[in-house]
Amino acid sequence: MSVIFQKPKSLADVQTHYCPGCTHGIIHRLVAEVIDEMNIEGTTVGISPVGCSVMAYEYFNCDMIEAPHGRAPAVATGVKRADPELFVFTYQGDGDLAAIGTNETIHAAARGENITVIFVNNTIYGMTGGQMAPTTIPGQITQTTPYGRDPKTNGFPLKVCEIISQIDGTAFAQRVAVDSVPHIKEAKKAIRKAFENQKEKRGFSIVEVLSSCPTNWGMTPSEALKRIREEMIPYYPLGIFKDTDVWNK
């Protein structure tokens, strides 16, 4: 008998603080698997955001920096410019990346920074208890949209991959989901690609991962995955929005 699947080496052997069924853990694992496969743990620096994944620095075994809310792409820029040989990734939620940190995200992309951004979109603010996010879908009930998000008063959601793919400095933008085994395998491939792009210095790479929040959606973990399939994917279609080489084309 030989082991064919186990916890990746670059993840700490601790229980995470995430709620049962929260798919942050799956995305952590995919990032760590890619780090292991590329054998880059010793040369990787991760940036954790403010939000549920703030404590990601406790879980990844590579060097980790905790950034102010929304500023992870700026912090990542500082690290990458200080040492361009490091692999630098940010791990950010929807509030962090697409509300308070929109400016930092868009300009890191515009500069074609050779960094990898893992964008976890679960259409809600998790850590603060389930308020409207910039990606909350029209009609979705949250603590701050108790009657459902009404675009007339709350505006429309931001479609991040669609926006980022319009920027010249973006090398790679793909939206994936972690609601099923085939989608998870697809997500892993996208994350791998986003890290490989750093090695090849192709420009800014972002992987948007449609993720669940059973607790704040008021659903079981299984129902939450169903919501990703039935409500989120139709609104946020999966696929590669951009794949190019900004610096060597």
Binding site: V3, I4, F5, T23
Partner: peptide, 9 residues
């Protein structure tokens, strides 16, 4: 989500 499962064959 908790990378709690090890698989062997």
């Amino acid at each position: 989500p908790d990378y709690a499962i090890t698989v062997e064959r």
